Amino acid sequence: YKIYPYDSLIVTNSISVKLPKDVDRTRLERHLSPEEFQEVFGMSIEEFDRLALWKRNDLKKKALLF
């Protein structure tokens, strides 16, 4: 996945969300650098992957990456 800054990946309720063209809309968190991922989620990507799907989705919603 290509890395993008968190600010360019957050999704708000506005209709005209302009995400970069090559971003996987269903896995926005994968486009964060490991350092920024840790900062946003408070855990590593590996720890995040071990969580239940509902928990990952809940965290993504709170981080505006859903």
Rank of each mutant, 00 (worst) to 15 (best):
Y1I: 15
K2H: 12
I3Y: 09
I3N: 05
Y4W: 05
Y4N: 01
Y4P: 02
P5Q: 04
Y6V: 03
D7Y: 14
D7E: 15
S8A: 14
L9F: 02
L9G: 00
I10Q: 07
I10S: 04
I10A: 05
I10G: 02
V11D: 06
V11T: 12
N13I: 06
N13T: 10
N13S: 13
S14H: 13
S14N: 14
S16M: 13
V17I: 11
V17M: 08
V17F: 03
K18G: 15
K18T: 14
L19P: 07
P20S: 05
K21G: 13
K21V: 13
K21N: 13
K21I: 13
D22R: 03
D22L: 04
D22E: 08
V23Q: 02
D24A: 04
T26V: 07
L28V: 03
L28E: 01
L28F: 02
E29M: 01
R30I: 04
H31G: 01
H31S: 03
L32S: 00
S33W: 03
P34G: 09
P34M: 12
P34I: 14
E35A: 11
E35P: 09
E36R: 03
F37I: 02
Q38K: 13
Q38N: 13
E39C: 11
F41L: 05
F41K: 00
F41E: 00
M43Y: 04
M43T: 04
M43N: 01
S44W: 06
S44T: 15
S44K: 13
I45L: 13
I45A: 08
I45H: 08
E46T: 12
E46Q: 12
E46A: 13
E46R: 09
E46F: 11
E47R: 08
E47N: 10
E47Y: 08
F48C: 01
F48R: 00
D49R: 05
D49G: 07
D49T: 06
R50T: 12
A52W: 07
A52Q: 10
L53D: 10
L53R: 09
L53E: 13
W54E: 13
W54P: 11
W54R: 10
K55F: 09
K55A: 10
K55C: 11
K55Q: 14
R56P: 01
N57S: 07
D58Q: 13
D58E: 14
L59V: 03
L59S: 03
K60V: 03
K61R: 11
K61Y: 08
K61Q: 08
K61T: 08
K61P: 00
K62T: 09
K62R: 11
K62Q: 10
K62V: 08
K62W: 06
A63Y: 07
A63C: 04
L64H: 13
L65H: 01
L65F: 03
F66V: 08
F66L: 11
F66G: 07
